[in-house]
Design a binder for these strands. Structure first.
Lengths: 235, 235
DNA sequence: ACCTAGAGAGTTGTTGAACAATCCCTCAAG
DNA sequence: CTTGAGGGATTGTTCAACAACTCTCTAGGT
C-alpha cells in the first residue's frame, strides 16, 4: 500500500532508478552497454575504462565488472587479464568462423522444418516487410536490423531454446563486423530480396531447395563481407 | 527442498585454490567447482551457498560470484535472482533440446568433412580406444568420459572455435543428465562399439553414410536417455 | 478450516574503500 | 638499438556494511 507520498518519493526515487524492474543492476548496466556496442557507438578496439564508467553510470566497480562479464560471455566484449575489457576487433578468421556456424545452424534448421503454415511464418513475413520498407527509405541501418531479425526468427522456427541463444550471440557478434566496415548498402541491399525469395520457398514447403538457396546466400554474404573487410581497414 | 550444500567434499582440496597461478582466482575457483559438478559430486537441485563457499575456499564473495558467472554461462549452474545459484535439474524438454543441438552440429560437421587422414583422426582413435578399454574394465564412468571426448574431437575436426565452445557446453550439460540418472552401463555400453563403427566410416571417407549413422546413433541415445529418465526420477 | 497480512530470519545484491598485482611508458645505461 | 629499472595508472581481490528480497511461520479475520 502507498505511503504518505510527500517526501517518500524523493527518498526512494534514486533507488527506483536502479531496481524498478525485475532485473539486477548489473543486467541493466549490461543492457545499456550492449545497445551501445551493437549500435556501433563504440568502435572496435575501444577500451572500456572502469573508472570512467563507474563515474558516469553511478554504479560500483563490482557491479560494473559483473556487467562486463555478462557481455564478455556474449562475445560483445573481450577481457584481457590486468588490461581491461575492449570492444572486440574481429579478424577474417572470426568472420569465416561465424559464417561456418551460421551455415551449420540455419541450413540445418531449414532442412528439418515441417508442418509450416502462415501463422508460424508470420514473424518472418514481418521481418522481410520491414527490410523492404527500410530499403525503400534508404535506411540501411534499419535494413540490417530487419535482416538480423529475419534470421533470428528463421532459427526460432526450430523451437529450440539453445539454438535461439546461440544464434542471438552469433548475430550480435556479426553486427560488430558490419559496424567496423560501414558500407551498409552494398552489404545489405542484395539480401532484402533474397530474404523474400527464401520466404517464398518456405511458404511453398520447398525446404530442401530453401536450404540450398540459404547455403549459397550465406556463402555470397560471407564473400561480400570479407571483400569489404579487406578493402577498408587501415589498422 | 535441497538442504545447504555439504562442504566436506571441498575441504580436502581447498588449498588447491592457491597452488595454481597464471590465471585469475575466479577462474581457479570456477575450475574447482566445475570438476565437482561434472563429476556428479553435487546432485542436481543443490544450492551453492555463498556464505559456506566463501568460508571454505577462502576467497571473497565478489570473486566467488565471478566464478559463479563463469559456470552459469557454461550451463553448469543456474542463477535465480535473490535466491542463489543451483546445480540445474534438466527436464525432458532440456534433453530433447540438447540432442536437437547435437544432431544439428555433429551431423553437419561430419557431412562437410573432407581431406581426412590418419593424423587428423588420431584423437578420435585414442578416444575410441580409451572407451573400449574402460568398457573392458567395466569402468562406465571412464567410458562416458571417453565418449564425451570422442564427440568433442569429432566436432574439433571442423576447426571452428565457436563450434568447439558450443559443443563443450552442450556435452557438459548432458553430463549432468547422466549423473542424475545413474544407470551408466546401459547408457554407455552400446555406443562404445558404435563409435568404432563411426570412426571406420570416417576413415573410409564415407562422410554421408557416417552422417546418417550418427543421426540414428543420436536418436537411439536420446531415446535411451529419455527412457531412463522416466523410469528413475523420484522428484 | 482457510486465506491473508505481516513480522522476522536468513540469504543475496550492491556499495565504497583499501591494498596488492600487473601492465605500460619513460628514461638511463650498456 | 637494445636492455632493464623505476614509477604512474589500471585492474584484481578483499572486506565490511547495509539494502532488498525470499521464505517461513504466525496471528488474525472470515
Amino acid at each position: 500500500m502507498p505511503e504518505p507520498a510527500d517526501t517518500a518519493w524523493l527518498r526512494t526515487v534514486a533507488h527506483e532508478v536502479r531496481s524498478f524492474d525485475r532485473s539486477s543492476t548489473a543486467e541493466r548496466v549490461a543492457e545499456l552497454l550492449r545497445s551501445r556496442v551493437i549500435e556501433g557507438d563504440l568502435p572496435p578496439g575501444t577500451r572500456l575504462s572502469e573508472e570512467q564508467l563507474v563515474e558516469v553510470l553511478h554504479v560500483s566497480r563490482n557491479t560494473l565488472r559483473e556487467a562486463f562479464r555478462l557481455l564478455t560471455h556474449e562475445g560483445l566484449l573481450v577481457h584481457r587479464l590486468h588490461r581491461g575489457v575492449f570492444v572486440p576487433e574481429l579478424d577474417e578468421d572470426d568472420l569465416v568462423d561465424l559464417y561456418r556456424l551460421r551455415r551449420t545452424i540455419e541450413c540445418d534448421v531449414v532442412r528439418r522444418l515441417e508442418g509450416l503454415d502462415a501463422v508460424r511464418l508470420r514473424p518472418l513475413y514481418d521481418a522481410v516487410a520491414a527490410g523492404e520498407d527500410a530499403a525503400r527509405r534508404g535506411d540501411w541501418g534499419a535494413a540490417g536490423t530487419a535482416n538480423m531479425r529475419f534470421h533470428q526468427q528463421l532459427v526460432a522456427l526450430a523451437g529450440s531454446r539453445r539454438l535461439d541463444e546461440t544464434t542471438a550471440r552469433l548475430l550480435a557478434e556479426l553486427r560488430l563486423a558490419f559496424h567496423a566496415i560501414a558500407v551498409p548498402q552494398r552489404l545489405h541491399e542484395p539480401y532484402v530480396s533474397r530474404n523474400r525469395g527464401l520466404l517464398d520457398l518456405l511458404t511453398a514447403g520447398e525446404v530442401e531447395q530453401a536450404a540450398k538457396e540459404l547455403e549459397a546466400y550465406l556463402h555470397d554474404s560471407e564473400a561480400e563481407l570479407l571483400a569489404a573487410h579487406r578493402e577498408r581497414p587501415r589498422s
